[in-house]
């Protein structure tokens, strides 16, 4: 190979039949060769319900981040938020597909009609009461400080979970977790860097970061309470009891806020996970209206 004019030329030249792609190549399928059989002694309904919890967290947080497209404070940060949202959407797709293959489709399958894949049926044709996401991700955000503080908390919790799920007895969950860990490590790092800069920045950025932390901290109340499904799957070596994540999550968040010169708000008392039971505030209905509008108006449409 001779002198390489650009980094992109080099890549397309190096990959032969993948040269039709203008830019990067060599993409991996995270589920290639993974056995999709539900493990022994695991109720597929439990596995599906668990995948909905984790998938809905990713889908809804991804949508919250997507709402910042065209109104992020800087163009570079807009692309960063969009990339993070896309990572989360990718995790949601794999998890919702897994829920569908485990037979957990609720009312969505019939509504979506034939030709709509399970993951799309679940994302676009469930009503808010069928969603299993936590209050942390459904809450609307206010300003950019709120975005990065919430992202820091959500990514810290999800990274702690994904790191443990890599040894799940369910090979699909283990593969999804293995793919998610580097993504979430970046999300947490990106959010932490912004929290450091806002907290230890100007008086105004400090004030906003502090207000955001005060608003987000109460949303952690139900993050460490296991549902019966999570307890059964944790016993079976498939899922994780979220109580196990408490020390790591609180330790990381305390460290970041302290270094950002922000007061660490009081940790809320444990609360029952209402979101995991489908109990959500009206803000999820508004979010889903936007998320589902086109798919419901034109079911099965492609473009």
């Amino acid at each position: 190979m001779g002198h390489q004019e650009t980094v992109y030329d080099a890549l397309t030249a190096a990959h032969g039949d993948e040269a039709r792609w203008a830019f990067g190549t060599g993409f991996d399928d995270p589920l290639a060769g993974v056995d999709a059989t539900v493990p022994d002694a695991v109720d597929p309904a439990d596995l599906g319900a668990y995948c909905l919890m984790l998938g809905d967290d990713a889908l809804v947080l991804g949508q919250r981040l997507t709402e910042w497209i065209t109104r992020a404070p800087e163009l570079e940060e807009e692309v960063a938020l969009a990339n993070i949202a896309l990572d989360l959407l990718g995790q949601a797709r794999l998890l919702l597909s897994r829920a569908g293959s485990a037979g957990v489709l609720g009312r969505s399958r019939e509504r979506a009609g034939p030709g709509v894949p399970d993951e799309d049926a679940l994302a676009y044709f469930r009503d808010p009461d069928e969603f299993r996401c936590s209050a942390l991700v459904t809450a609307p955000d206010g300003d950019f400080a709120h975005v990065v503080v919430r992202l820091l908390v959500a990514a810290t919790w999800r990274l702690a979970l994904a790191a443990r799920l890599r040894t799940s007895r369910d090979p699909v969950l283990a593969a999804v977790a293995a793919k998610a860990v580097p993504e979430l490590t970046y999300h947490r790092d990106h959010a932490a860097r912004w929290v450091l800069r806002l907290g230890d920045g100007t008086a105004e950025s400090h004030r906003r970061a502090r207000t955001a932390a005060d608003a987000v901290w109460p949303l952690t109340a139900d993050l460490f309470t296991a549902t019966p499904v999570e307890r059964r799957l944790a016993d079976a070596g498939v899922g994780i009891d979220p109580a196990e994540l408490r020390d790591e999550v609180r330790g990381v968040l305390t460290q970041v806020l302290t270094r950002a010169t922000l007061a660490v708000p009081a940790w809320p008392a444990d609360a029952p996970p209402r979101g995991r039971a489908g109990e959500h505030g009206p803000e999820l209905t508004v979010l889903l209206d936007r998320l589902q509008d086109v798919a419901r108006a034109h079911p099965g449409a492609t473009w």
Binding site: V7, Y8, A10, G26, E76, N83, R193
Partner: peptide, 30 residues
Amino acid sequence: VRGKRGLNHVHVGSLHAPDAEMAVHAARDL
């Protein structure tokens, strides 16, 4: 950016960032 099989770093563009660390992050994303 240095590509997977590139020998040297090649200029790919420019961006605005508050400091050098965040510039590396933004470059990764862009």
